[in-house]
Write a protein that binds this DNA or RNA. Structure first.
Lengths: 192, 192, 192, 192
DNA sequence: TATGAATGAGAATTCATTCAT
DNA sequence: AATGAATGAATTCTCATTCAT
């Protein structure tokens, strides 16, 4: 039983924690938060129930950890690296990034949306979503103003509604939705 | 020598059934299907737990009854009564009806959407939603074709995505969403 | 609403009562006392649950009524009408009567035996069975003594055990048991 | 670095399982399967209701486990170890073994027989009983043939009926039955 | 006599969480 | 860090019985 260095422990901790998070998100998004038992998560993660409680103090906190971790990914939608882009180009990049999120985080979003419709129990999720929505409207509005739209705020809200609608349809309907065609239609509106 | 006539019994049954249904839909839509216990429903309806099972054979069947009853309301979105309307006018009526549904059945939709994201358990809900979506695309496409849109199908999908997006945002964000302004923006696109 | 005579009322009462008793015995004997609900009995009898309680004050009392009514039938096993029979003939008649009961009251016996194995709850059934057993041993013993058996009591107990065994096997195994052949074998032992 | 070795866990599991099985068989055989609630079993076993479901997936499966475990004991009735026995001696050993089972497993049999009279719900029990009966007839027949009985099959069925009858009477009547005298009478018939 | 809606106690089962090792 | 046995409160559902009409 050789003593381990601090780093080794950290690594072990990290691995188990990661396995649990992955198992949880996979189950939450497919069968839903309520139909997912802690036992199932532990089993899927290949660890004991006890260990799960070693890392997360409750099922709720596990959810919180997932949301925290994944919501960060959404933050770089508006972080445009390249300089010298026209507003049109910037807008298209943003739209494409959003589609990318929808595609790459289908599971996470399928987990999140049901919870956001639950009052009382997960208010923090609603607050987060609202904050993001507001932020997105403002940033999009700025770009649309540069493009001389008459009511940039209204137009921004419409664009975001459309994107949310595609996301919603994609999450519910899935493969039968002509997702790529829709994406193209939206982008075309802002070309040139 | 029955003590009550058939009609009297029917009336009694109808009243109790209604009380239970109302309590259930109210709870399902606010705290969600899974967080709503049969006990809570009975309590809210002011009846005993046992009676609930006199009317609905299980919690699932109660849900089914609610969905059945309310989905019928959605069917008349495309039933236009008045004759001699231009395609523009018809489209606007349809959009307005949809906004009406979103507003009047917020609770029902907040209950339905989370369940539609749950695989396996409530497949019938997904099937229903997909069928409706398809039907709506086709009907909208016809109208847009009459209005000489270049890609009426794409355009129809975009319009429905936008409407779904508004619905989604309204369900999640609620009163803080400038719902009426958005509605106006959409309708304006199809005026004249 | 013409007034009825006392006799007419009696007849109505008798008919409903009879229907309930028949439904109950049919269900008790096929799916067992505990798996039979009062609702099922009422339904099978074609009357309301309320009426059932009009005739029998509880499910237990209904059982009691059935047992009372049917146990009387067993009493005439030893009532031999014809005179001038040899002990052999008498014994054979008794055996045949017992087989007759087994065949004609299979349902009743299938109901009774499980209940007789239940302690505390239906002690009266056990007491009845024990009393009958004792009585049967004594009467059989007398006949066997006349036939100069060495240990008539032992022999009587053996004969009754064999009859009970056939009954038991017939109740459990049913049609696959070569019932008639066994009956013949037993009777043959006492011919001549 | 598991806190207990595999063997230790096995031991703990074994002990709890045994406590539950013993409590269940004791209750099933005295007050019957249906009158025994899972709560009563847990209470008698001195464990929580929840733990019971850790070991047996349902009340039905608990019953199945008991039947499985105990039916195995019945299999060695016909396994005669000693060589060089006359058919008479063998037969007597078998009869004695059967009496032994009746005495030692009174509780189990009192539980089993009521269930075997229930159609639909526990068919597997009936199938088992019928299979055993058939097997016993065949084996007994062989021995009786060696003893030059004229109709060995009939005779075998009679003997088994008698044994079943004694079992039945012993189960219902219990201590008031002159069990040992009956046993002796039967065995005497086969003493050369 | 007859009805069936209504009750409530109790049944089987699930599951997040704890804890000794 | 890791295990999994054990708990108990809560959940869904059943059913004998009551009662107003």
């Amino acid at each position: 039983m050789s003593p381990r260095t601090h780093t080794q422990w950290e690594e072990i901790r990290g691995k188990s924690r990661e396995k649990i998070l992955n198992a949880a998100i996979s189950l939450f998004s497919s069968i839903g938060y309520f139909s997912t038992s802690v036992s199932k998560i532990a089993q899927k993660a290949g660890v004991s129930k006890g260990l799960l409680y070693n890392y997360f103090e409750s099922k709720d906190h596990l959810l919180l950890a997932i949301v925290d971790k994944t919501m960060n990914l959404l933050d770089d939608v508006f972080k445009i690296e390249k300089k010298d882009l026209t507003p049109n180009e910037e807008l298209i990049i943003i739209i494409e990034k959003m589609f990318g999120i929808i595609e790459n985080h289908r599971g996470f979003l399928r987990m999140l949306i049901p919870l956001s419709m639950q009052i009382n129990e997960f208010e923090f999720i609603n607050n987060m979503i609202y904050k993001k929505y507001d932020e997105y409207v403002k940033k999009t509005e700025i770009l649309l103003k540069e493009l001389d739209y008459q009511n940039p705020e209204d137009e921004a809200r419409l664009l975001l509604a459309t994107l949310d609608g595609v996301m919603y349809q994609y999450l519910v309907i899935g493969v039968n939705l002509p997702y790529d065609k829709i994406k193209e239609s939206i982008i075309n509106k802002y070309k040139k």
